[in-house]
Structure formats: structure tokens, C-alpha cells
Amino acid sequence: MINGVTQLEILDFSHNRISNDGAIALAKLISWHKSLQELKLCNNYIGSLGIEGISFALARSPALAHLDLRLNSYVGDEGGIFLCSALSQNTKLKSLFLAACGLGSKAGKFVGEMFKVNSTLLEMDLSNNDLTEESGELLNQGLIKNFKLQKLDLRMTNVSQAWEFAINEQLARNIANSTRNNINSNSQPNMKTIEES
């Protein structure tokens, strides 16, 4: 039924226990649907197998800009690594929510590496995952080369306050650059108007 809906922009399957099989079925939709911009899959017992399917589709998605996977505690490091691999290729996704998804330091390392190459993600929620202090350092290293991300939620991740402060400095730089770019683009004279006058 969903396959025939061409104008679908938001799909919310949260709290439906779709598990891996449902996630894999939805992955097919993500990979081809040209208008689907937001997908919410909170609290669905999705594990790394389902995330692998979603990640494969995400790397090819023509439109998806917002993905919410919060409260899927079986995602784990393996699922986090799949998502990071997809985000290293994806050029559409602007926000990804992974709060309480069972991510650990391995996933934290890959998130840091993904930050170095991803140029579209604006917001990411990693709260309530056991990333550890080492992950804080790796996330910060990734953000040194990332000029796009503006919001990163690290509450209850065991990332130290010192690393959170350093990360927030990188995010503030990105916000300032974005604001400056917007001001510059808005202040450029309209060439058509100049030619007409």
C-alpha cells in the first residue's frame, strides 16, 4: 500500500515492534522513494541486522533527510558502524537520532571518522549511549574536519565535560560559519535588478 503513495513525506512507525524484518522492508522504501523526507522508527526492537538494511538503503536514498531510531537498544556497535558507513556516502540526511541505541566506544570511533567525510548532517543525538571518554576525543578529532554539524547531543554518554566543551567549540564554529554564509548570500546584489536599473 505504501509503495503506491508517491507524495509521502513523513512516515512514523514508532513503538510498533517492527523488529529487523520490518526495518528491512522499510529499507526498500527508503532506497527509492523520491518524496519521503522523514522516517521515525523509535522503540521498535530493531537490531544490527535491520540497521544493516536501513544503512544500505540510506547510502542510496534520493530524499530522506531525517531518521529517528531512538530507543532501539539492540542496534549496538555493529549497527552504529553500518550507519556510519552509509553516512560516509549519503548526501541527503540532515538529522539522525540514536539515543539509547546500545552504542559503545567502537561505534564512537566510527562516528568520529564519519564526521571527517560527511558534509550534510546538521544534527545528531547520541545521548544515553556508553561512548566513553576515548570516544569524546575521537568525536572531537572528527569535528575538526567537519564544518557542517551544528548540534550533537552527548548527554549521559560518559564523554567527559572537557571533551564536551571542546566539541561544543567546534559546533559553535560551524554555527557561526553557517550564519556568516547565510548573511553573505543574502547580501549579494541581484544581478537582474542591477542590469535593469
Rank of each mutant, 00 (worst) to 15 (best):
T132W: 08
E78C: 07
I24P: 01
K34C: 11
L103M: 07
A57Q: 11
G142E: 10
G76S: 05
S85P: 01
A86Q: 11
S127C: 10
R70A: 13
N140C: 06
A23W: 00
L139G: 02
G108P: 00
W32S: 15
E113K: 15
G108W: 02
I30A: 11
K106F: 15
L49T: 07
S73D: 05
A25K: 13
E134M: 04
S55I: 09
I46F: 04
A65P: 00
A99Y: 08
E113H: 14
C101T: 14
T132E: 06
D77W: 05
F97S: 06
L93D: 01
K116C: 12
L26C: 03
D21K: 14
N118R: 09
E78L: 07
I24Y: 00
L87M: 12
L143D: 11
F97D: 11
S88K: 10
A23H: 03
N129S: 06
S119W: 03
L29N: 08
D21M: 07
L29D: 12
E123L: 06
L83G: 07
G80M: 07
E123I: 11
D68T: 10
L49N: 06
C84H: 04
A86K: 07
L121V: 07
H33C: 05
T120S: 09
K92E: 09
L41E: 09
K109I: 09
Q141W: 04
M124Y: 02
G22M: 13
L26P: 02
M124T: 02
S31T: 03
V117E: 12
G80F: 09
Q37H: 12
A25T: 06
S105I: 15
G108N: 03
G102Q: 04
A59W: 10
Y45M: 03
S85H: 08
S31C: 03
F56A: 14
S55G: 14
F97E: 12
T91P: 05
L138N: 04
I51Y: 00
L58V: 12
E134L: 05
K92F: 02
S35W: 10
L93V: 01
G142K: 07
H33V: 02
R60K: 15
F56K: 15
T132Q: 06
I30E: 10
Y45S: 11
I81D: 05
L29G: 07
M124G: 04
Y45E: 13
G142R: 08
A27Q: 01
L71E: 15
L143R: 13
K28D: 00
W32D: 11
I51W: 00
L71R: 12
A23Y: 00
S105Q: 15
I30D: 10
D68Q: 08
L41A: 10
Q141L: 14
F97G: 01
S31E: 14
G104I: 06
D21S: 13
D130E: 07
C101L: 08
L49A: 09
T132Y: 10
C84R: 03
G104R: 08
G112M: 01
F82A: 06
C84A: 08
L122T: 09
L138E: 08
S105C: 14
S73K: 13
N44S: 10
L29E: 11
Y74T: 03
M114W: 02
T120G: 01
A107R: 09
